[in-house]
Amino acid sequence: MQQILYFFIRNKNFLLFILLFSFSIFLTIQTHSYHKNKFINSSNYISGSIYSIKSSITSYFSLKKENTILLEENTRIRKKLESYKNKITNYNIDTAFVYSKYYFSYAKVINNSYSKTKNKLTINKGINDSLKTDMGVVTSKGIVGIIDNISKKYATVQSILNTNSQINAKLKNSKHFGSLIWNTVDPNIVQLIDIPRLAPVKIGDTITTGGKSTIFPEGILIGEVKDFTLTQDKNSKYLNIKLFNDMTNLEHIHIITNLDANEIINLEKETRDVK
């Protein structure tokens, strides 16, 4: 008995090291699977509030730029509104009953990373603002990512600049769709894979979300084709996409809530269960 005790005392540093090291490896591996990482993320109370203090100070520096972006968006939305008005003047529809599947809310980015291989953002809204995991996050220019961890007041977003991210996207003109991934090289260039060989692609073509998931509605802008090559097996095309968003410089974002998400997911689950 004493021998064992002596062994522990003599090797206490080594045992402590092994214990803590394996615990950290466990935490690391846990983050590799999508939103399993419940404890160690920046949506928790302490780091969330520290980040929001920081953001409340630094956000003043970019006020001018943010204002221009808001103005641009306002003009764009006003133009759209005018065109709708022209269309529906004759019908006199009560707009209170126009049904929309998607509900938009806004939040502020309080921490952003883009230089790692698995990038995350932290935003200043959480469960209290009725956010849930798996909601889409966009800006006025294009998509940003998907909410993966959430606390009462904060949430972390898995950015599209993350090697775990795979988002359904399509060519705006030809409706061929593929998956959007990131090869970690440039924070403003992402890749679209699995586009069929026969799909007509031109440099400068617009890429939008495909609407094949419950997260993003169809037609949210992503970017434009920068260049493309055939893959080695000559079956599909590999496209480099230049993002419309500047992912290194995000501040105000919109969160998309799909009001039918539960219904769709339940239906799909039932269909699977029947099989």
């Binding site: 950290s24 690391t28 993320n41 932290t122």
Partner: peptide, 15 residues
């Protein structure tokens, strides 16, 4: 790690 959302990589390397 908590602040940079990276799981346990900094903890492992530091230990």
């Amino acid at each position: 790690d908590v602040f940079s959302d990276s799981g346990g990589i900094h903890a492992a390397a530091s230990v």
